[in-house]
């Protein structure tokens, strides 16, 4: 018997449920356009995916967009040729997009695993730089080879045939499920032994290894899991946009992810979640007309936080005590 009351006393759990309910309600009551909701879920989702490796294990994967790109392109290629085949044979190859997205995410996870074996040996800035290198290497490879696969992919852009857009109705549902999975995975990992091990790695990797934490295995697992979800989100986002182009590899997406995590605070689930909510509120209220100026303000917030509150907004709150109850114990 699940103790409901116990769960209700966990603010992070409650917040996750609230976010999920809010998005479902907004969709059902048509408070926001479907596109807007999908965009929100995409950005919060990728931030929470990165959180698994950056927030918990302390490995700042700057080139994380590489997984958006890889999965986006794999997904687009599968859908493109699936539809093409279906049209050729005049039948419907009704492979559910969710399944294709899982495959696309799986490819990213596999790449993360293979690349992670050597690259996760690097620490700190060197890891960050190496992932930037990977992102650019993958970007230029895609730029070179995608147009060779098919002349229609001019400028490495794959526009999904109109036929594929029949699937588009399912995009919201697919995105919603993936988004929920990312949030729940974050929550479960944070509470698990695995999560404690990752946090120990981010504190002091050598000490963690000496205390029995299988650091290599854990880092690889977190990296692959993070890549898997990032990839799935990228694939579904690509479908929503009706196609993919090289912009998926754009480091600007990394900026969004990292800003959300740093504003909220690393090392928790609540942090990046709150961070991304703040991020969107700022984005929508501050300046819709000048997105650049918006980012200037966000950048300044990050700069101030890194200097004065390195553990973000949640980091400040976690240090407080309310009515004798230490917030640190309940904010996960």
């Amino acid at each position: 018997m699940v103790n409901v009351k116990e769960y209700l006393e966990r603010p992070t759990f409650v917040l996750i449920i609230l976010v999920l309910v809010a998005i479902a309600l907004a969709k059902l009551l048509r408070l926001e356009t479907t596109d807007y909701l999908i965009t929100i879920m995409f950005f919060i989702g990728i931030a929470m995916s990165l959180n698994l490796i950056m927030g918990f294990a302390g490995y700042v994967s700057f080139g994380h967009t590489v997984f958006l790109g890889i999965s986006g392109y794999i997904f687009a290629l599968i859908v493109y040729y699936n539809v093409w085949l279906a049209e050729m044979l005049d039948t419907l190859f009704g492979i559910p997009i969710f399944l294709v997205a899982i495959v696309a995410g799986g490819v990213s996870a596999l790449v993360a695993f293979l690349v992670g074996v050597p690259v996760l040996k690097l620490r700190g800035a060197f890891f960050a730089i190496a992932t930037i290198g990977l992102d650019f290497a993958a970007l230029y490879i895609v730029k070179a080879f995608i147009p060779i696969i098919n002349p229609e992919f001019f400028g490495a852009q794959i526009i999904l045939p109109a036929y594929a857009l029949a699937y588009k109705n399912n995009v919201f549902v697919a995105m919603y499920i993936t988004f929920a999975l990312v949030l729940i995975t974050n929550y479960v990992v944070r509470r698990s032994r695995f999560g404690m091990g990752l946090l120990a790695i981010s504190e002091d990797e050598d000490a963690a290894e000496a205390l029995g934490v299988p650091t290599r295995k854990y880092k690889l697992l977190a990296f692959a899991l993070s890549a898997f979800f990032t990839g799935m989100l990228g694939a579904i986002f690509g479908l929503n946009a009706g196609g993919v182009d090289e912009n998926l590899f754009n480091l600007a997406h990394t900026i969004d992810m990292i800003v959300m995590i740093v504003i909220g605070g690393i090392g928790t689930v609540m942090g990046p979640l709150v961070g991304s909510i703040i991020y969107f509120i700022l984005y929508d209220t501050l300046l819709v007309t000048y997105p650049e100026f918006n980012l200037v303000i966000l950048g300044s917030i990050v700069a101030v936080l890194v200097l004065f509150a390195p553990r973000g907004i949640i980091g400040i709150i976690r240090g407080k005590t309310i009515r004798g109850k230490r917030l640190r114990d309940i904010i996960e």
């Binding site: 032994r193 404690m196 091990g197 946090l199 120990a200 504190e203 002091d204 000490a207 963690a208 205390l211 029995g212 934490v213 299988p214 090392g267 553990r311 640190r328």
Partner: peptide, 17 residues
């Protein structure tokens, strides 16, 4: 582990020992 509590520090030992 500086950002861990004293108890959490010791718990890591038990969980992975």
């Amino acid at each position: 582990f500086n950002e861990f509590t004293v108890l959490e520090n010791a718990m890591i030992g038990a969980l992975f020992g």
